[in-house]
């Protein structure tokens, strides 16, 4: 297990390095300069570019960026003079993270409950009901849900605020909007996992032992059925945590997603790069975490990693 962890973390760091390099050269490939504002003189523009070190060879800029990155310095925004990229991230991330993690939690809990209920129920009405709710939930775009919620709760009923992040109430709608799709997927995966596991022989033995149904479902089956859910949830959580541009612009939340789209529109190289590296690190990190968690949960990999070399 320890060697597996070490190997996996090492390759994770390597992926991160590849990501940084790819992102760096991709942003440099973008046409247009961040300093092309109105009809400024070419000489002035060149002056600014020299100031920021953009006239030096690309490789030098790259190495410079890497060495800064190692020290945790992501540079200074080109478009917002004097604002460090890290500041932008630290301002936007907490908001996004709060909404994202609530959405992850909500989708895991609600999705699992729905999925398990659907799998164990003997009533066709419940089964079909949950089935169509989950299909509908995942078939409608999340901003359609978002717009409908805004219209219903904010405009018609006027019970919830629809913009900003002032109090807990204002989090409800964005979290709901973000959580709908992953909830439906989790419910589907849970249902399939349970459907598969409930037919296994060990359930028969558990019943023969005289254990109660709740115990069998909650302890015996759940531990075997939740692997696919985790495998889905890892990357999905990464995207929820790094923010959704759509949800953030509907509810007017100053989060990472909006920051990123705006930075691309502004050609703000350092900000694009910084955000890409940060979000990529979150994605790679959570992928890694999921892999380790799955390895830990399945005893075959946990105990000695046998068969890996076969």
């Amino acid at each position: 297990m320890a060697s597996y962890m070490f190997k996996r973390i090492l390759t994770g760091v390597f992926s991160l390095f590849v990501l940084v390099s790819a992102a760096f050269f991709l942003t440099r490939l973008m046409p247009g300069s961040p300093f092309e504002v109105g009809n400024s003189l070419p000489s002035v523009q060149a002056e600014i570019e020299r100031e920021y070190g953009l006239d030096r060879p690309l490789l030098e800029q790259y190495l410079h960026y890497l060495s800064n990155l190692l020290r945790g310095d992501l540079g200074i925004s080109y478009k917002k003079p004097g604002v460090a990229v890290t500041d932008v991230i630290w301002r936007a991330f907490p908001v996004t993270c709060k909404i994202g993690s609530l959405a992850v939690l909500c989708s895991l809990v609600v999705g699992s409950v729905l999925g398990i209920w659907q799998a164990v129920t003997k009533r066709a009405a419940v089964y079909n009901g949950i089935f169509f709710v989950t299909i509908l939930g995942s078939a409608v775009l999340n901003f359609v849900w978002g717009s409908l919620f805004v219209w219903l709760f904010g405009v018609k009923l006027k019970v919830l605020p629809v913009v900003g992040t002032s109090d807990w109430k204002s989090f409800l709608l964005p979290v709901l909007t973000m959580a709908i799709y992953p909830t439906c997927v989790v419910a589907r995966l849970m249902r399939n996992g349970f459907g598969r596991e409930m037919r296994k022989d060990y359930v028969v033995l558990a019943r023969a032992k005289g254990l109660g149904t709740m115990w069998i479902v909650g302890v015996h089956i759940l531990k075997n059925a939740c692997l696919p859910v985790l495998q889905y949830m890892g990357p999905a959580a990464a995207f929820l945590l790094t923010g959704s541009f759509v949800v953030e612009s509907i509810f007017n939340i100053p989060g990472l997603g909006r920051e990123f789209v705006n930075s691309i529109a502004n050609r703000d190289y350092t900000l694009i790069l910084g955000l890409t590296v940060f979000m990529g690190a979150v994605v790679i990190g959570l992928n890694l975490l999921t892999d380790l968690l799955c390895a830990w949960l399945s005893p075959t990999t946990r105990v000695g990693m046998t068969g890996a070399g076969e």
Binding site: H220, K223, N224, P299
Partner: peptide
Amino acid sequence: AMVFQDPLTYLNPSL
């Protein structure tokens, strides 16, 4: 109580 044919599939693999 019951004892089954294939003890591997009748024991929960992850407990």
